[in-house]
Amino acid sequence: MIYVFASFSKTGNLKYISHLDLNRAMTRLLIRSGLPIRFSEGFNPHPKLTFAQPLSLFQESLCEVAEFRLDEGADCPDEAGTLAALRAVEPEGLHFTNVTYSDRKLPVCKAAKYELTFRTALSPEALSALFEGEMPVLKKTKTKETIVDISPLIREKRFSAVEGGVKLCCTLPCGDAYLNPSFLVSFLGERVAGTRILRTELLF
């Protein structure tokens, strides 16, 4: 059995598709690909499929990674063959960029790089200043609401001017300390009119 790490981008209208829906779409895509996918055992067999780091609704990404398994055998192609088989059945907005084989599971994703493009009248400097001090945001869970300072979690900040606003490149933690980039947007509140969130790299 081979573990396959398939990298893909999820952009355009696919930002309106939730992680759960993507999971179902990816399952169907794997079936359409005709690859010798390894299915789960049991009464309702389905391809074993996991993602390195779920992406929230309204966010785009250039660097998603899905892990599934292939049965080794005569009809199992090499990495390039698998990439070609996936590309042949990919829907609009989802594009496979790379396939790597492994003999073990996908490692835990530690952090992710993002590009946030804010539509705002503020200058990069003014925006940067806002990110210097404490950045309290309200985090809600099912049972409680807490105020958290997200400032220490945001690393490698770079602000630059773009047409109509400011672009922020930064690295945010994944795993247990995961910080959803949407918290940066809610921190800024009314100061920005809209934000495009693009994930650019996953760090393992």
Partner: peptide, 18 residues
């Protein structure tokens, strides 16, 4: 685009299905 961020299940309104 700006409308879709304020509705439930925006995927209903975007087309582009396989």
């Amino acid at each position: 685009a700006s409308l879709l961020e304020h509705v439930e299940k925006p995927g209903r309104y975007t087309g582009g299905e396989l």
